[in-house]
């Protein structure tokens, strides 16, 4: 009875995810997401893009991009009409969680204001009655702050690209953001001595 409470029946992919942390991380995963807003309680994730970085290289074939289908749970806060119109293939929240966890497993996460992204993921996980994200994470904004010796200054993604003289893409989707983040990460990584 008690064991039932502690060893809650978790789905297979969650076990696989937690098990993966027995081994050291082998890659970085650059992650970027689009949300309906900045409120972690009310807003939801609409799209996620991620790509992996191994040995100073961005591995494109090891990347994904998903769009999540939402049912309106609060009519005033989320008008989901545009979602139904869009032509992009979408998947449900539970499906997406499985894909994401399988993909990131024990890797180190990289993102722009990554704490917010993780917060959003945690909320999604708790909705499905799962635990929290356990990955180590680097925030490129914090990295830039360290390089420029500025304290907690806010840098938009484009701003960072300009400061570090990286090419700016004129496209503007989650995946493009993830791509820019990956380049910025590669650029700063050596400067900060991250292996």
């Amino acid at each position: 009875m008690l064991s039932k409470i502690f060893n809650k029946e978790y789905p297979e992919f969650w076990k696989k995810y937690t098990d993966s942390f027995k081994n050291p991380a082998t890659k970085y995963v650059v992650i970027s997401m689009e949300t309906s807003g900045l409120d972690t309680d009310k807003d939801v994730i609409m799209a996620i893009a991620a790509t992996s970085v191994i040995n100073n290289r961005i591995i494109l074939k090891d990347s994904f991009e998903i769009f999540i289908q939402h049912k309106a749970f609060n009519e005033t806060s989320l008008d989901n009409e545009f979602i139904t119109v869009s032509k992009v293939d979408k998947i449900t929240e539970s499906q997406s969680v499985e894909i994401i966890l399988n993909y990131i497993s024990n890797s180190i996460l990289i993102g722009h204001r990554i704490d917010f992204d993780i917060e959003m993921l945690n909320k999604l996980l708790s909705k499905l009655k799962l635990g929290k994200i356990r990955n180590e994470a680097f925030d490129i904004e914090a990295m830039l702050n360290k390089i420029l010796e500025t304290n907690d200054k806010m840098y938009a993604l484009d701003e960072m690209s300009n400061i570090l003289k990286m090419p700016v893409s004129n496209r503007n989707s989650v995946a493009d953001d993830a791509y820019s983040i990956a380049l910025l990460f590669l650029k700063m990584k050596d400067k900060l001595g991250i292996r």
Partner: peptide, 12 residues
């Protein structure tokens, strides 16, 4: 699946 990453490269 849509691959926006690759499209970026194709653009270039």
């Amino acid at each position: 699946m849509k691959n926006t990453f690759a499209e970026n490269i194709v653009d270039f």
